[in-house]
Design a protein around this nucleic acid. Sequence first.
DNA 1: ATATTACATGAGTATATAGTTATATAGAAA
DNA 2: TTTCTATATAACTATATACTCATGTAATAT
Lengths: 116, 116
Amino acid sequence: MSQLDDQAFIHIAKYFQALAEPMRLKILNGLRDGEKNVTELVEISGGTQANVSKHLNILKSSRLIKRESRGTKAYYSISDQRIYELCNLVCGQIASQMSIDAAANEAFISTLQVTQ
Amino acid sequence: MSQLDDQAFIHIAKYFQALAEPMRLKILNGLRDGEKNVTELVEISGGTQANVSKHLNILKSSRLIKRESRGTKAYYSISDQRIYELCNLVCGQIASQMSIDAAANEAFISTLQVTQ
DNA sequence: ATATTACATGAGTATATAGTTATATAGAAA
DNA sequence: TTTCTATATAACTATATACTCATGTAATAT
């Protein structure tokens, strides 16, 4: 396995890592319908301002979201809508893994707001 | 945001977490062309036996891989081929994020073996 | 029965990460 | 300038995670 491959795996792993946190998924979900400022995201997510701010920074570092400063506010938005495809795939797999009947399965999927 | 939604986000985050480790991606990549036993995966990944064994357990707990014991050997295989779709999506996004020219971009993508 | 091979796991360490609290900074308004 | 609002960040704590080394266990071979 080459050094270059190792770097690729590290790169991909970091990307998944950015998505591997409930609060960050919640934030991304909150951005589904367009940009929001930090205060709005704090309300939506139910987290503290400091914590949300840190998560936003992590998401931005991973290029999942963009930041635009207007006045005293900072507006964040999704960089690439394809992340929702990722979430859809994962939701589909998780749902199909659940050993519950089809109706309950359907109910579970409908609770997943991380979709387009 | 309801309690149920919170559970969903936790669930999805755990799934991504399982994919957020270079060694585990390497192992999954090693399983692309079918089942392999632990010793084979140790060789492919370049990790220690103990460490690979632990990662295999994590991947199994996350239902990404299955285990079948035959004789003294344990054969692992991919549970759901759709994980490669995930990796493809991520690779595509990472590649398109890279601020390098198209040729280098292509070269990078070709090094990513986490594809079907 | 003993040895060997293949794998899993416990103990311990080091590092990373998420969270809180308090504080810093920056723009807008008074 | 001072104040207020919005956001970022530093310091700290708690927890999780990856890794190594040593050991346990289970199937096979001698």
